[in-house]
């Protein structure tokens, strides 16, 4: 599992493996590799229920380069690409 360089504890969801369970600390949509603007990406993530404190678990991974991922966010399952999941900082 790759650690976020900013902190020894914080992990970007986009780097996590299948089976990872954690809690969302915050969203940081800068420098994610997504084609969306940071503002738009953050807005969409919030609309899909990615808010601080939510419990996340990576349930499934895609075939090619383990991408996209299916993430359980509290009580719902969202499929998204790892590049967008980079904006979600978890612990």
């Amino acid at each position: 599992m790759t650690r976020d360089p900013n902190s020894s504890q914080d992990i970007r969801l986009g780097h996590a493996d299948r089976g990872f369970v954690g809690k969302i600390l915050r969203l940081d949509a800068l420098q994610t590799g997504s084609s969306l603007s940071p503002h738009e990406l953050e807005q969409r993530l919030v609309e899909m229920g990615f808010v601080e404190g939510a419990r996340v678990e990576i349930l499934h991974e895609g075939t090619i380069r383990r991408d996209p991922i299916a993430v359980r966010v509290d009580t719902i399952t969202i499929a998204l690409r790892r590049s967008e999941a980079m904006a979600v900082i978890v612990e």
């Binding site: 084609s35 990406l41 899909m48 969202i78 998204l80 690409r81």
Partner: peptide
């Protein structure tokens, strides 16, 4: 020169 668009979908 166009980056791929995001994919975000609820799996009901």
């Amino acid at each position: 020169d166009h980056a791929p668009a995001p994919f975000m979908l609820e799996l009901p």
